[in-house]
Design a protein around this nucleic acid. Structure first.
Lengths: 173, 173
DNA sequence: TGATATTATTTTAAGTATAAAATAAATTGG
DNA sequence: CCAATTTATTTTATACTTAAAATAATATCA
């Protein structure tokens, strides 16, 4: 009847998971929903506007913040993915001429990955646009809400580190 | 010197990304860090304790909450992954005898996926343990902090839906 | 020293994920 | 009714991701 369609809740992980579930579980599902939502948006936009992927952009971003380059292990830790994953990603980006490997002098096992000029240029083109996407997606939150969210997520992060299910080394925060 | 090692900040996406970055970006990186952390923990625990994977568990969980089963499209929407992904996952789980496809009577294009008794049993074994992992990882937050976080993430979710970069249909919440 | 352990990376195999094209069935509008 | 469109799913090709094994180099310490 009406020409104005009412907003309809999107179907996501929270759809059928509610009332009777514990707060912890609902919180996790909502956190995952938010994270996935933003990730999908960024992923799609990177593909459409720059014909690249999120892992590639992420790797370039890590390198941009580390002018002296990073080892494979450091990249693996910061991006929180497996070693083998980084090997493949770095291979592809090196093929495209965006990153280069420099063998370490002190340790012949490791090498430093860094941006090539082409890689730096590509990243510098993308990053302000990327930042705009993030700003836009968070536009519905006030400054204060963002700060509060940031602080609460900091607490959550600490809690997960302290109570990790496995690999509980006890000395990471 | 001391026998008591001091906690050392873990290296993650936030490591080199700070001071000079905008709040929005830092918030996104922290959100992604939290999400990845929990995900990795759950993934590892599922593998160690039940020799299964997160996508499989996730699909079973979705079906458990929908006793009448779900179509491929519904699963795809709720798990926020592509259609083709669901096809493959459902194929593997069907091979393992945990889910079954029932052709729809009304629409010959679609089928309903549902848990088999074996699938239900497997899920019922895993879910209380899974819930314990989540509870444990969130143990550092008070009830009130969890509620606040839940509420703020709700706002964020809404904001992302409203300001999506692409596929902005304008009628989903 | 030299055996042992640890660390850094790559390789392998399998699974997970996407986008795009293909297939097939249902819906819509003339 | 029927041509055109939309919808549901699968297929294809490629990329990403992991865990585990393999390699190779470094560190440790009796």
């Amino acid at each position: 009847m009406s020409e104005v369609r009412q907003p309809v809740p999107a179907n996501d992980r929270e759809t059928a998971a509610n009332r009777d579930d514990k707060l912890e579980l609902r919180l996790w599902l909502r956190l995952l929903t938010c994270s996935s939502l933003i990730e999908q948006n960024v992923r799609g936009a990177l593909r459409l506007q720059f014909d690249t992927t999120l892992p590639r952009f992420d790797l370039l971003a890590q390198l941009d913040r580390a002018p002296d380059g990073l080892t494979m292990s450091e990249l693996s830790a910061r991006m929180m993915v497996s070693n083998g994953n980084i090997t493949g990603l770095a291979d592809r980006l090196a093929e495209e001429g965006l990153v280069k490997r420099t063998p370490s002098q002190r340790d012949r096992r490791s090498s430093h990955i860094s941006l090539t000029p082409a890689g730096k240029k590509a990243f510098d083109t993308m990053t302000p646009v990327h930042e705009g996407w993030i700003d836009r997606m968070m536009a519905g939150l006030s400054r204060q809400e963002m700060q509060q969210l940031f602080q609460l997520l900091g607490k959550l992060k600490q809690s997960v580190h302290q109570n990790a299910v496995e690999a509980d080394e006890g000395d990471k925060v």
